[in-house]
Nucleic acid binder design. Structure first.
Lengths: 107, 107
DNA sequence: TATTAATATCGTAATATTGCAATATATAAA
DNA sequence: TTTATATATTGCAATATTACGATATTAATA
């Protein structure tokens, strides 16, 4: 098979899984850390910094954009990537809610 | 290719990615929620509850155990699964540290 | 209008993940 | 000791992900 059976889970469970999946790659973690540590706009220096080929970085950026964790603003022929703070905080809140709800236990 | 280049990332980045990857499936989210909502021991009723075949559930449990998020205690022919609260809180702290460090931005 | 530079998309090979049937293992009960 | 029950492991087919070369797109600059 190889196909996740999303239809048997609820929206919240699928939503959490999608967020975790986007974050589940060290290159995407590294990209987020790099973007957040630069005060200025980040463009193709991500490629030099991370050490993966340009198409690969572009693909990872697309995945981060797919859940709006980052946004890209066109500045001439460069693109300024930055973290979408609103979404970032929303995600952090969502994950904390999950961790706080999932604590009670028998052992 | 298809192989993540872990060697070009640091330990922390790989560690975070592994944690996110374990959580990146709705069945594993559902299992964690189900385990935490039961006051008593959870055994093979997980299979009935989630709606995936027994070997599939067993595999997901194994992945959750691989980072110690849950632990299983043998009780006769049943196994009592529960959340490893210590690890659970460690992970929550780690993720929050990541989210808090990765906020400063230019846009 | 070329040329250059930055980024995105396409196509594809290699590897990983998901899910399950079949089977193995382990323990309680008959 | 057989049988039944609970869980794990194996093997495999289907699909997804990762990575990158080749190429397309877009915009500044010569």
């Amino acid at each position: 098979m190889g196909l996740t059976k999303t239809q048997i889970f609820n929206t919240r469970q699928n939503q959490l899984a999608i967020i975790f999946k986007v974050l589940a790659h060290p290159a995407r973690i590294a990209i987020l850390q790099y973007i957040s540590n630069q005060k200025e706009c980040i463009c193709n220096d991500i490629v030099d910094e991370i050490g993966l080929a340009q198409p690969t970085i572009s693909q990872h950026l697309k995945e981060l954009k797919s859940i709006d964790l980052i946004q890209g603003e066109i500045e001439g022929k460069k693109i300024c990537y930055c973290i979408n703070l609103k979404k970032w905080q929303e995600v952090q809140t969502l994950l904390n809610a999950f961790f706080n709800q999932t604590k009670i236990n028998c052992c």
